[in-house]
Design a protein around this nucleic acid. Structure first.
Length: 628
RNA sequence: GGACCCGUGGUGUAGCGGCCCAACAUGCCAGCCUGUCACGCUGGAGAUCGCCGGUUCGAAUCCGGUCGGGUCCGCCA
């Protein structure tokens, strides 16, 4: 696995700009690279020559090499040079300890300008300079010249390499699947590619190779993986691009634990290979059921690097007869209606001013809460807050104790339905975790969330909708729940037992991001048909959408399951970047355009004609003026 | 589809009703300089303040629209 470093010598260079050391002193060398910085002292010129491997100081002395000096005086930032000369130790006292090559310099005898360069539109040689992102994207080839981008792309390359190595070593076969496939009206919106050979028909770009990898299981490939490009035509976010890369894998003859155990080991090996300096919080990834994750963290992708878990206050609020009698009407009414009263204890905010609490209340309302109650624990331990006068000192203190708040903490309380309470507190927890820097940025906290509900009720269409992938299998003990109250799977209704069925679905989370998700699939045809019926699909509709896979399942489908991990997200997390754009060579803007290529663009009229297409405008919008 | 934020010399920012045909830093150009490494010194060029319209005696500054970018909600594995 560890090969000797390859020789990067070419006719233009004997070494890279990061290679020369004191031990090379006295040897001739030739370097090629870009002018990082030029320091012109008249008869003596220093040029820092840069390539992706490093920086070497070149000295051009007019008395040694008048021709080279004349050429060097014409060189400017980002000119491409090749320089020959002798490697010499720097004069005592002029070494630069900040450079790996800082003990030596190249005393130039020959300087050749291979190419001139316009003044760059932003600083390539200053790692800290903030640059407008659109400008970076327009000149991405210059942006990638910058050291920070080089390092991120390098890390991504090592990430993919490590993934391949672990999978090959574990008996996986890398198979490529097509990018021109069939559209399925499920999940995200498809990107559509019109067919020229079959006018009027379209291909879709894959949202993921989901069906194809399951077909590979039927084909007996046994263990498949792919670094797959996926496409989804949905609105963009910092962690979502219209095209992105997944580690897609599928395994045969497995149960949930087989897949999770493999992925866990793989993730650890890959992390250690790529970022050995970053500690992994728990090498046995904690596993939470969906219900538990929502209960404790209010999120299905909890950041496990810090605590601040959600605490149920109901036991303290109940009166002696069991009925809620806290004295604070909001709490009592919510509990009487079957809702929840829960809290998080925020460290260090006990002395927060009113304005800060108002701001948190606004945030909570933005997240869907009707309000946000709070109890401040003062440094001496006294509990204060506007609701204390309703609760009484004793109950207020018991609530604070239950929330495990310490002196100086702030207890934030939400009372609402279970879903709203968990969601709002979960979002507050995530936001405060970031803002208060509760999470160690160096730590990698992997974890699992599994046993998601199979379906959620789709009020609009009156059917059960697969929470994740429509092929996700049901937890064995819940198999009997895959039915309706009426007994007819084709007549679904809210309240059906199916609503309680849990899927063999697992998400892997890392530092508060959903890194990936997968499931053990339904591989038995009878269960698949029942599941699809609950989702409101007729047999004919199923055939037209999933014909190939349904057919294939009649020819001996093995039990199988798999997962897909977002490579872009993984790379962003491993480099602590806030967006995946920072780990993609050529990402798109939020409106899906590429400022460098100026894509998308209007097609040539001939291209439309060839496909039998004509642009007739966007429904509901007036046609664009002809002159633009 | 919606909410919010941003748009000023090449770049990053300041200016937020008259003192601004716009300031600072850096970059760029020219000259000088043999030990610098964010080299230094001297001089110079460079912006109709994203665009359109309005308010006003007067707009970079206020208002409306529009375009571009970003964050978030919806959407999305």
């Amino acid at each position: 696995m560890t090969n000797p470093p390859p020789s990067l010598a070419t006719p233009y260079r004997t070494h890279t700009c990061g290679a020369l050391r004191a031990s090379d002193a006295g040897s001739p060398a030739r370097l090629a690279g870009w002018v990082h910085r030029r320091r012109d002292h008249g008869q003596l010129i220093f040029i820092d020559l840069r390539d992706r491997h490093g920086l070497t100081q070149v000295v051009i002395d007019a008395t040694d090499a008048p021709e080279a000096h004349e050429i060097a005086s014409r060189a400017r930032s980002e000119f491409v040079l090749t320089v020959a000369g002798e490697v010499v130790r720097r004069l005592p006292g002029t070494e630069n300890p900040r450079l790996p090559t800082g003990e030596i310099e190249l005393r130039a005898s020959d300087v050749t300008i291979l190419n001139e360069a316009k003044t760059p539109p932003f600083y390539i040689n200053d790692p800290d300079a903030p640059i407008d992102e659109t400008l970076r994207l327009r000149y991405r080839y210059l942006d990638i010249r910058r050291e920070a981008m080089q390092q991120r792309l390098l890390l991504r390359s090592r990430l993919v390499q490590a993934i391949r190595e672990v999978h090959h070593a574990s008996g996986f076969v890398e198979v490529e699947t097509p990018n021109l496939i069939k559209s399925t009206p499920e999940g995200a919106r498809d990107f559509i590619v019109p067919s020229r050979l079959q006018p009027g028909a379209v291909y879709a770009l894959p949202q993921s190779p989901q069906q194809l990898k399951q077909l590979l299981m039927v084909a007996g490939v046994d263990r498949y993986f792919q670094i797959a490009r996926c496409f989804r035509d949905e609105d963009l976010r910092g962690d979502r691009q219209p095209e992105f890369t997944q580690l897609d894998l599928e395994m045969s003859f497995v149960d949930e634990a087989t897949v999770m155990d493999f992925v866990e080991r793989m993730a650890i090996e890959v992390s250690r290979a790529v970022v050995p300096e970053r500690p992994i919080l728990a090498t046995l990834f904690p596993r939470f059921t969906f219900a538990e994750a929502m209960e404790r963290f209010g999120s299905d992708k909890p950041d496990l690097r810090f605590g601040m878990e959600l605490v149920d206050l109901a036991p303290e609020l109940a009166g002696t007869d069991g009925a809620a009698a806290s004295g604070f009407r909001v709490f009592d009414e919510v509990l009487a209606a079957g809702g929840r009263v829960k809290a998080i204890s925020v460290p260090g905010l006990g002395a927060a001013p009113r304005s800060r609490i108002d701001e948190l209340t606004e945030t909570a309302k933005r997240f869907g809460a009707k309000g946000l109650a709070h109890l401040s624990v003062e440094a001496e331990g006294a509990v204060k807050g506007p609701i204390v006068k309703f609760l009484g000192d004793d109950l207020a203190e018991r609530l604070v104790a239950r929330a495990e708040a310490n002196p100086g903490d702030l207890v934030l309380i939400v009372a609402d339905t279970a879903d709203v309470t968990n969601d709002v507190l979960g979002r507050l927890r995530a936001e405060l975790g970031t803002r208060l820097a509760l999470a160690d940025p160096n730590v990698l906290a992997y974890g699992w969330v599994h046993r998601f509900p199979m379906y959620q009720w789709d009020t609009e269409n009156g059917r059960w909708d697969a929470t994740h992938n429509p092929f996700s299998g049901v937890v064995p003990e819940d198999e009997a729940l895959l039915t309706t109250t009426s007994g007819d799977p084709a007549a679904p209704a809210p309240g059906d037992p199916a609503g309680r069925a849990r899927a063999m679905q697992y998400d892997i989370v890392l530092n508060g991001w959903e890194l990936g998700g997968g499931s053990v699939r339904i591989w038995r045809r009878d269960l698949l048909e029942r599941s699809f019926a609950l989702q409101g699909y007729s047999l004919e509709r199923m055939r037209s959408m999933f014909g190939a896979i349904l057919d294939a399942f009649e020819y001996g489908a093995p039990p199988h399951g798999g997962i897909a991990l977002g490579i872009d997200r993984w790379a962003a997390l491993l480099t602590n970047q806030a967006t995946i754009r920072e780990v993609m060579a050529f990402p798109k803007t939020q409106s899906g355009s590429d400022p460098m290529l100026e894509a998308p663009s209007e097609p040539d009229p001939g291209q439309y004609a060839e496909l039998g297409l004509r642009f007739v405008g966007i429904p509901g919008k007036p046609p664009a003026a002809p002159d633009g």
